[in-house]
Design a binder for these strands. Structure first.
Lengths: 147, 147
DNA sequence: TATTGTTATACTCTATAACTATA
DNA sequence: TATAGTTATAGAGTATAACAATA
């Protein structure tokens, strides 16, 4: 077993700082919601359905790191808002497939969520190199989450 | 008013992707907690006090983007765990200053939080250039949150 | 009067447990 | 038996409202 190298100490620092930064921006973004807007979880589920097409509750839950019961609640809210619709699985009577409705697609197209607008305005104040770093980081952060 | 330029569309994409990525990693990290460990909010408050020294409830609330009442709850939990202690403000009888106790300092030194360990392990699987990108991004994300 | 902090209460999101239906 | 989903209940974190003490 080696003593920690300088690069390992740097990595520990990076992990700590990234964890704190993620938490801080998550809390900052959380307060940017206008009345009647989709919650962060609802928006994440909608975005996932847009990218991946129809999915079951269980698969959506795995993708977003929540329990199936929690995703069930989120999907019930989206269904009641008319943004997703359910249909039976063609071969497995237990499963239910969820897909975006036309209204759901329109909701994804509409570029007016307060959280997104706030983040966009904040990023506009950065210089191009920093924006590029954040775009690259977004892909890496997703990769980390799914690893 | 100009039509959106290519670079503006790129920026919109970056904002959307970053927002989704932050949410996804926040949920992924949230499930990595061992029984008895500090919550993410408690850890953030502790880290803030370590960096900035003694602070009032209101200042801590502003730093972490929650209401003073919410930070009051977090600080009460930390106080009960013996990790922070309160003392009166020297000149303003309304304010209360919170600072780390020896146990709080020790808790910050201890490098064993499940969330941090999970993130560290995930980052170890990245190549050095990607780690560097994430370290730079952590600083930018903090800057965004505070902008 | 304005501000800091506390107490009481409620809301959102997610979790665990128990249940039904299907495989 | 095992799995997908539902229903009921509970917990964590944060919010709003009402209040007390101090500036």
């Amino acid at each position: 077993m080696d003593l920690p190298s300088d690069s390992h100490l740097l990595l520990e620092t990076a992990a700590t700082e990234l964890s704190l930064a993620i938490g801080q921006l998550a809390r900052r973004l959380r307060i940017e919601v206008n009345p009647g807007e989709l919650s962060w979880s609802q928006n994440a589920a909608l975005a996932r359905l847009e990218k991946a097409g129809a999915m079951t509750t269980a698969d959506l839950a795995r993708s977003e790191f929540v329990k199936p019961q929690s995703m069930g609640t989120t999907l019930a809210d989206l269904e009641q808002a008319g943004l997703v619709q359910r249909r039976p699985h063609p071969t497995d009577g237990r499963q239910v497939l969820f897909a975006l409705t036309d209204a759901g697609i329109a909701a994804r197209r509409k570029r007016s969520l307060a959280r997104r607008e706030w983040l966009l305005a904040a990023m506009e104040r950065l210089d191009p190199a920093d924006r590029q770093t954040l775009l690259a980081a977004a892909a890496l952060i997703k990769q980390l989450a799914e690893s």
